[in-house]
Design a protein around this nucleic acid. Sequence first.
DNA 1: ACCTATAGGTAGGTTGACGATATATGTAGT
DNA 2: ACTACATATATCGTCAACCTACCTATAGGT
Lengths: 122, 122
Amino acid sequence: MQEPTLLLLTALADAPRHGYALIQEVAAISDGRVKMRTGTLYGALDRLLGQGLIEVAAEEVVDGRARRTYALTGAGREALAAEAGRLRAVATEAERRLTKIRAMLPGNAGSQGRPASGGGLS
Amino acid sequence: MQEPTLLLLTALADAPRHGYALIQEVAAISDGRVKMRTGTLYGALDRLLGQGLIEVAAEEVVDGRARRTYALTGAGREALAAEAGRLRAVATEAERRLTKIRAMLPGNAGSQGRPASGGGLS
DNA sequence: ACCTATAGGTAGGTTGACGATATATGTAGT
DNA sequence: ACTACATATATCGTCAACCTACCTATAGGT
């Protein structure tokens, strides 16, 4: 699952929303960094509907404009929770490794971390 | 940046590694869930080299086999840190929204605009 | 002889994100 | 009245990234 898709599910996690509102919500979640285009949005919505992760919660006409409201399904909720946990684990590991003090001096390559499967350098 | 790429940078964060070791390291980081194929690996390595996020740290011949060792550059280190922080924020937000108690009961769609004032969508 | 692990690489197909475009209504300014 | 912008949904073609499958080659185990 890619990030735009994850943001979409996240935007639906607390309340059902319609397409246009999702674009704004995704922008809000990502602090304005992700401006989702309609091409991405409706493509993703179709895909997620097909995967059963979201469903159409309502189809109304508000002020003369058609409005289709989407909601997370149980499966979508589970998928989002699993994905979020996984991403958190990767982020934690990345940060842990970045802060690890490396004794990587010239001529000392490969001495850190696990030994490379028995076969040392020549 | 997608997850395989992120895992690759993470695998290089604590020490330089060569291609095959990266596949194993990525598998270890992801708890065996991501078994990166060589097609993905070398495509990503080429891309990251082009972006200046990694560099070739060493080219040796070990036991008759060529071995190219890759390392994170300063830019790669920054990119990984930024990416990890971003992902953590998204994961946190997703989890926060998922645990939020929703007042979205059936027939209670009031928080999402007023109920249908017209017919459904085409 | 065969298999597995190590090590690196290419070819081709699929997926998903994206930009561009189309349609239509409401609101605000000039 | 006209123009511009925000709201709202939708399709199409392109492209980057990923993935499957395949290939070469050495070392060591069964």
